[in-house]
Design a protein around this nucleic acid. Structure first.
Lengths: 167, 167
DNA sequence: TATAACTTTCAAAAATATTTGAAAGTTTGA
DNA sequence: TCAAACTTTCAAATATTTTTGAAAGTTATA
């Protein structure tokens, strides 16, 4: 396989994986492209490489920066903006985990707390509902605590975690 | 909040959460509905409750059964099929994690292995590409091993994991 | 401060994913 | 064997998400 072929395959695969996990395909592709780019990349170059419009590139770069996994870089004497991806994978995973916790898991926990707190527990159906949603709240809450715990280590947390699990 | 209201809110929220994680909204809603149903539920009842077509119900129930998180149940003297959800949350999380590993992570790892194995490492760009994709393979591979490790405990693995992390 | 070089916005268009519903398929039991 | 009671399939319709591109906005510097 040639370099350009491999690069393209990687970008496509990362994009598809993103889709499967609820991340816009183009967003994942831009991220993939930046991850394997040795130098900061201009919007123009991203548009060219991925064959996407200016608007699309702009919006998805903004989203990636909101996630905190892509940064702007300014070059001496250059008017244009350049972009680089967070390349430290522990940091990348931490940012993604934290962000998904904040945006998706915590709001879901709030709903679980609310619905499991209904007083209307006369029927067998309602009793079961309360029991299940309480269990679910507990479980999701534990998983979320785990994310907090794990992401505060910062450095090499995945490796550390595996070590712990072995013991 | 009334029971029926709470139930509906839970189903909607679980559906939305599913969407955000790349799972068909209706599939997640059916799963939510079954999770909090005290008794096995017929396809007719699912269609009625979620206001969906027969085809939609049939296809998504099949998908849930393929994931191994919903089962068919036969009732004495009843021609119809009834459905129940896996209600043990450790088991549920294990099944989902294993399935996503098999369907999505392992194929992505294969691609990472392929693209990081290119020989064409003359340029700085190619060298960087190889280095990054190797690191990524390593990281994703470790995360995947972690899933294997964690899901083989079966019972109460999340709680155990938290204990380990504390120490 | 005017203009060129750039980025962002957003309504409309396009692409993608989901849903429908009717026909085909299957199973049970009279 | 037949027909009733059920489930599955899939092409077409619908809904949702993503993408485009041109206009508006911004910023640097002549």
């Amino acid at each position: 396989m040639k370099f350009s072929e491999a690069k393209n395959k990687f970008v496509q695969t990362w994009g598809a994986l993103g889709s499967q996990w609820g991340i816009n395909k183009t967003m994942a592709q831009i991220h993939a492209f930046l991850m394997v780019s040795a130098e900061p990349v201009s919007m123009e170059e991203i548009m060219e490489e991925l064959q996407i419009s200016r608007g699309n590139a702009s919006m998805n770069l903004r989203a990636l920066m909101d996630w905190g996994i892509v940064y702007k870089e300014f070059k001496q004497g250059e008017r244009r903006e350049f972009f680089i991806a967070e390349k430290d994978l522990d940091e990348l995973a931490t940012k993604i985990a934290r962000e998904r916790s904040k945006r998706e898991i915590k709001p879901a926990l709030k709903v679980l707390r609310e619905v499991s707190a209904i007083q209307d527990d006369k029927t067998k159906e309602a009793k079961h509902f309360i029991e299940q949603t309480k269990k679910l709240h507990d479980f999701v809450s534990k998983a979320d605590q785990m994310i907090d715990k794990v992401t505060e280590y910062k450095d090499n947390w995945l490796a550390r975690m595996i070590m712990k699990m072995m013991g």
